[in-house]
């Protein structure tokens, strides 16, 4: 019963995150989903994932979202939706039905064999994954640099104009240099 309550609360938070009119509220609801899921993971006897999900999912990602929203600014949220809503409903319920058809009901537990510890699996069996994670974190740092990069172009000047102006300037400099050479 507790499990069902936690998951129901997580789903409601997710719905609120989608429906929220302000970006900040959506972000906080998303953090709520993360926190509830980490409680659920702990109850499922996966404490390591619970801790990481709580600190990264509910902490770091939320801070990032808030930072990005403060940089990018709120925007009017009452735009018409991308697809007509009835069509989206039909697509979503269709895919949920198919998923439910294949997944449910599931009876558990076939191999009660003893399992190696988390550290053994993480560092030895799945060493390649750790390597990939390092690469991913590097990519994330680069992404963060992109987030922090200052905008050179003002909003009303498209990028193409800026490039064209830069090229023009370079050409002029080259011409001036050539003139100098000829005069010299």
């Amino acid at each position: 019963m507790l499990y069902a309550l936690i998951l129901a609360a997580a789903t409601i938070s997710a719905i609120q995150a989608i429906r929220g009119k302000r970006l900040i509220t959506s972000t906080l609801w998303l953090a709520g989903v993360s926190a509830l899921l980490s409680v659920f993971f702990y109850l499922m006897r996966a404490p390591l994932v619970a801790v990481i999900e709580l600190s990264v999912g509910a902490g770091l990602v939320t801070v990032l979202f808030v930072f990005a929203i403060s940089v990018a600014g709120e925007e009017g949220m009452d735009q018409p939706s991308l697809l007509p809503k009835p069509l989206a409903w039909v697509l979503v319920s269709f895919s949920a039905l198919i998923l439910g058809w294949f997944l449910l009901p599931q009876t558990g537990n076939s191999s009660p064999a003893s399992e190696p510890s988390f550290a053994t699996i993480f560092w030895e069996y799945r060493g390649l994954d750790v390597l990939i994670q390092v690469v991913l974190i590097f990519a994330g740092v680069l992404g963060l640099l992109g987030l922090l990069a200052e905008a050179k172009a003002p909003l009303d000047h498209p990028m193409a104009d800026e490039f064209a102006a830069k090229r023009e300037r370079a050409l002029r400099e080259m011409e001036a240099q050539e003139m100098d050479i000829h005069e010299g």
Binding site: R45, P116, S117, F118, I121, Y125
Partner: peptide, 8 residues
Amino acid sequence: DQINLTQS
């Protein structure tokens, strides 16, 4: 019953 594998 393979919670450690899925955790990693």
